[in-house]
Amino acid sequence: MNFDAARLILPLSSQEATVIETLQSKLDALRVSRCERLAWSESYEEMLSQLGQSGFLEQVIKPGEYFPDFMLPSAEGQLLSLAAFLAHGPVIISFFRGEWCPFCRLMLAALTEALPQISAAGATLLALTPETGGLALKMKTYHGAPFEILADVDCGIGLAAGVVFKIPPKYRALLGPNFPDRHGNSGWYLPIPASFILSQDGRIAWRFADVDFSHRPEPADIIRAVANMNGKL
């Protein structure tokens, strides 16, 4: 994978090599390697500046607010409701960009690895993707993900959560003309890869939101946040 190539380019200090690698350090290495391609770095910068200037993050739903209630199709074709999961404990909702996104793959791998601790903390993890046509199942199978991946068809819940944006022109060119087939619509929208932790009443207790898709929450931070919540309950 490209990630391995990036690791060869990035010199690791002996100190770094001995500590456990964080998700963010892997994401950073991937970003550095991708940025070597001018078309990629330009489209990345364009997206960051567009979302930064429009005050995008102010629109994302915040701690204290209720997360929109939903029932969505799972990768396996069941209709699953948020309420049913909240009945068992806190719910972590992570928005993903799609099966094609290498940054999402790194995060999914990290979450898959962290799932036993998330479950031990009493929380349920739900991954939301805007993709259709069997791609949610493909993503789940690829990672052997032991959590539900739900398809947020036409980005409805993403819109209600304030995480959806129109993809800027350069990034659209990078994604290619067949990209709309993945969503089953020609709208060219994506969610920012935000994560939310909901307490059992459906309110947001914690969130991670960044317009930079190469920035993701560390699973360790998510687990800590869930543990803190349980302490407060």
């Binding site: 209630d69 029932m71 947020d152 036409d154 409805g156 819109l159 209600a160």
Partner: peptide, 15 residues
Amino acid sequence: LEAMIEAAEAATALA
């Protein structure tokens, strides 16, 4: 945008 709103409303209404 209409499709997106409908998707949001349908997901919530179904719940």
